[in-house]
C-alpha cells in the first residue's frame, strides 16, 4: 500500500511537473503581449516644387475591436504636382508612440507597401529598394505625380512576405490595409 501510494504520487508528480510550459511554448510575460500592435498610418506629402507638406492619417488608437477609428482623413492633393510621399506606421496605444516604420525598414526584404488607385489620376513610382537580388521596392518612400482633377480612392496595403517577397500584393499576410478617399483638385 505504502509503495503504491509512493508510486502513484511520484507518477502524478512527474505528470504535473511536465505540464508547465516548455521552452518556446511559453508566451511572453506580463498582461499584454501586443508589442506589435499597429494603430496608425500617417502619410506625409512633400510638394517637390515647394517646402509645403500635407499630412493625412488613419488612427485607431486602441487597435482592432474596441472603439472605432478616431481619424480617417480624406487625402486632398493639388492637380499636376509631383509629391514625395513617406509612409509612417505607428503604435499609438503606448506612450511614447512606437515607430514601427523603423522595424519595417530593417526587415524591408520581407515587407512591401502597395498603393492601389481607383479613379484618381496619379502616376506612381517607388523611390526605395530593398537588398534582395534583384532589388524589390519597399514603398516607405514613393513619388505621386498628380494629373487632372479627379475624385476616387487610394488603397494602401502593407504586406508581410517573409522569404517570399515577390512584388505582388496578393502574397503574404496583411499588416495594414487602409482605404483613403482621395480628391485631386
Amino acid at each position: 500500500m505504502k509503495k503504491f501510494i509512493f508510486l502513484f504520487v511520484a507518477i502524478v508528480g512527474i505528470y504535473v511537473s511536465g505540464c508547465k510550459c516548455k521552452g518556446t511554448d511559453c508566451p511572453c510575460d506580463g498582461d499584454n503581449c501586443e508589442e506589435e500592435l499597429i494603430t496608425s498610418v500617417v502619410l506625409t506629402f512633400k510638394d517637390s516644387a515647394s517646402t509645403d507638406s500635407l499630412v493625412y492619417a488613419f488612427r485607431d488608437p486602441d487597435g482592432d475591436g474596441a472603439n472605432a477609428a478616431t481619424e480617417h482623413d480624406t487625402i486632398r492633393l493639388a492637380a499636376d504636382k509631383t509629391y514625395l510621399v513617406s509612409a509612417k506606421i505607428l503604435n499609438e496605444s503606448v506612450s511614447p508612440a512606437d515607430n514601427i516604420t523603423e522595424e519595417i525598414y530593417e526587415e524591408r526584404n520581407d515587407h512591401q507597401f502597395f498603393y492601389l488607385f481607383t479613379n484618381v489620376n496619379v502616376n506612381f513610382t517607388y523611390k526605395d529598394d530593398d537588398t534582395n537580388t534583384p532589388p524589390l521596392p519597399v514603398g516607405i518612400n514613393t513619388q505621386w505625380k498628380t494629373g487632372a482633377a479627379s475624385n476616387g480612392n487610394v488603397q494602401m496595403i502593407l504586406k508581410h512576405q517573409p522569404s517570399v517577397k515577390d512584388n505582388k500584393q496578393t502574397t503574404g499576410d496583411t499588416d495594414v490595409e487602409v482605404v483613403f478617399q482621395t480628391v485631386i483638385q
Binding site: 505540464c19 511554448d25 508589442e35 506589435e36 519595417i104
Partner: peptide
C-alpha cells in the same frame, strides 16, 4: 482542473528576434 490553451497565429511577429521565440499570440 487546470486547463491551458495556447493559440498560435499564422502571422508571426514582424520582429525577427520575437518571431524566433515562437510564442503563442494568445494564452
Amino acid at each position: 482542473q487546470f486547463n491551458v490553451r495556447y493559440e498560435y497565429d499564422k502571422h508571426r511577429p514582424r520582429n525577427d528576434s520575437l518571431a524566433a521565440l515562437n510564442r503563442p499570440e494568445f494564452r
